[in-house]
Amino acid sequence: MELLPVHTPAGFDSLDLLEPLAAALAGEGPAVAPHVVPGQSFGSLPNDDVAAVISTSGSTGVPKQTMLGVDALAASAMGTAFALQAEGQWLLTLPVHYVAGLQVLVRSLFAGTRPAVADTGGGFTPEAFNAGAAELTDRVRFTSLVPTQLHRLLTDPTPETLRLLRRFDAILLGGAAAGPALRSLARSHDLRIVETYGMSETCGGCVYDGTPLDGVELDSVEGRLRIGGPVLAEGYLGDALLSKEKFMFTSGRRWFITDDAGESAPDGTVTVHGRLDDVIVTGALKVSAARVGDVIQAIPGVDQVMVLGIDSPEWGSAVAAAVLGDVDSGTIRQAVHVELGAHAVPKAILSLDAFPLLPGGKPDRRTIRALLERA
């Protein structure tokens, strides 16, 4: 099976990928691999079913090259159409070398529509979003955003930005957890937000507002979520050992073993609690980073928060928080102390104007942790 490497530097026209991607999905061309570093070697693909090779975000480790099959991408696109109860025209706001961006192209190809593109060469801005959204012509309109992007759009929004946001039949929001403040703000502006959960290994979002897409099943084994169904990737290119570890057959079907904690209810709905490694052991006591984050997020004036463990000579690990918004550290420490106890109070609190981001729009956890360790 051949592979078509596509280098996507700044200024790359994402729509140039439509034709080779369409050929790959039809089995009439090589699989596409967006954002290949010049000189990078991928090796050979294992079968003819692979349509695209997408890098994981690398937010907590080395990015992995995930092989997405034709049938999996088709199942994801059709599942999205069923979940949204429509097909339509999409606005692309994310890089195509990440799964959320690629899926905008895939869904557009299956819907027979041409996406519009927000020019983010100079970074994501409300102006770039407005210009891209204004190019949409279809009656039914969708877009996919990460929480940081939506936060920027709703910070002192212009009437034009709000008008364009309200014009979307659905705004998929994924890549990171959206806090209660952002959800409430979106509701106050009458935006149709659909919160998604998924990853490169599941062709992007496979759970919409807590409900799995058609054919997708999630369950929890000792608190760890695993995902089964037709949207699963073929594995990791050039890493058969990791593929075997993360994709396995059990209980009569193939599953992807996630790094997330969560649970599924008898009605099939899913609750995701956060990453399993979000538990911080500080002074021999366990602290849930997600729980600390929830307490801080509920404080008036906090827009977004990220809670991480940082190295500490005294405690082994210490709780630390990076915060966007207008709130003083004393208020944060008091709120956490009252709700969770002294051991959960952040030892380091850093106020930022914006989170450092990975190219796909997710907060860069490694960079944020380094900033907290210097705070």
Rank of each mutant, 00 (worst) to 15 (best):
L172G: 08
L172V: 10
A178K: 00
G179L: 01
L182S: 04
L182E: 04
L182V: 08
A186K: 06
A186H: 05
S188G: 00
S188Y: 03
D190K: 12
D190P: 14
R192G: 01
R192L: 07
I193M: 10
I193W: 10
V194P: 04
T196G: 06
Y197K: 03
Y197M: 05
G198P: 09
G198K: 03
E201H: 11
E201G: 02
T202A: 07
T202P: 13
T202K: 09
C203A: 14
G204R: 07
Y208G: 00
Y208V: 00
Y208Q: 01
D209F: 04
G210H: 05
G215Q: 00
L218Q: 02
L218I: 09
D219W: 02
S220C: 09
V221Q: 13
R224E: 05
I227W: 03
L232P: 01
A233C: 07
G235M: 05
Y236F: 15
G238F: 12
A240H: 10
A240V: 14
K244F: 03
M248R: 15
W255F: 11
W255S: 01
W255V: 03
F256W: 14
F256T: 06
F256H: 13
I257V: 15
D259T: 11
A261R: 14
E263R: 15
P266G: 08
D267G: 13
D267K: 14
G268H: 14
T271W: 02
T271Y: 01
G274M: 06
G274I: 04
L276E: 02
D278I: 01
D278N: 03
D278F: 00
V279Q: 12
I280E: 00
I280A: 00
